[in-house]
């Protein structure tokens, strides 16, 4: 349903663009290119969420500018939207495996949330695993997508009150060993605090920082680094 809506709006936009193109004013080509770039990057939406959203927003602004008759501005924004969409695709491609994993996790959650009654006899702990939270280099702030992941994690933790969790903080292996320990502590700490704000009792959560000592991936590529900058959950 979501998908068909997206296609419909695309169709309308293209039709409009074609009409306006006939008038000679609006930057039809640039807008079309941006739409194409967004379509190409659509599969990456779950992985490069922020960049993809920025691309979408930029294209919306381009459309608005075009509707207002400010064609130069519309062209500039459409081109920026193309670049952002391309960036989102590239970012996601760097780490395609992880992206697919996250998508399937999201689908699982969507499936479960869609089926509110739940299937009797299915133990949720078998199906659901607490989503790992990822971070950019040398940062410990939660992105929008991480906050979404954590809200799902929190919902599950509230449903499973008997379980306790250990939050393990990690970094990639670049930079100071000692600073990375502190950084991994901060990552685990912000995750714990966020879960707390979502109602998970602090007494159920402990933290352990591992710095760069326990990589999820042993390679030295950006994809490996991205996989290693994380906060993981262990239940007990």
């Amino acid at each position: 349903m979501k998908k068909s809506a997206r296609f419909f709006s695309l169709f309308v936009t293209m039709a409009l663009a074609a009409l306006m193109g006939a008038c000679g004013g609006p930057p039809t080509e640039a807008m079309d290119a941006a739409e194409d770039a967004l379509l190409n990057a659509a599969w990456a939406e779950d992985c490069a969420q922020e960049t993809f959203r920025s691309a979408k927003k930029m294209l919306d602004e381009a459309k608005q500018a075009s509707a207002d008759g400010d064609y130069d501005e519309a062209k500039r924004k459409a081109e920026a939207a193309s670049r952002l969409a391309e960036q989102a695709r590239k970012d996601a491609e760097l780490d395609r495996e992880e992206c697919e994993r996250r998508k399937s996790a999201m689908n699982q959650i969507d499936d479960r949330l869609g089926d509110k009654d739940g299937s009797p006899g299915v133990d949720r702990t078998d199906v659901f695993s607490l989503a790992t939270i990822y971070f950019p280099f040398n940062e410990f702030a939660l992105s929008d997508s991480s906050q979404t992941d954590l809200s799902h994690n929190a919902a599950w933790l509230l449903d499973n009150q008997a379980l306790r969790i250990r939050i393990e903080g990690h970094t990639d292996d670049r930079g100071s060993t000692e600073y990375n320990l502190a950084l991994s502590q901060k990552r685990a700490q912000v995750v714990k605090r966020y879960l707390q704000t979502l109602g998970v009792d602090a007494s159920r959560m402990t933290i352990i920082p591992y710095g760069e000592e326990k990589p999820a991936s042993f390679g030295a590529g950006e994809g490996d680094h991205a996989k290693n900058r994380r906060a993981e959950f262990v239940t007990f």
């Binding site: 000692e178 320990l181 502190a182 502590q185 901060k186 700490q189 714990k192 933290i207 920082p209």
Partner: peptide, 8 residues
């Protein structure tokens, strides 16, 4: 460095 009160 200690993180006994969480912050390093």
């Amino acid at each position: 460095t200690l993180t006994k009160d969480e912050n390093p």
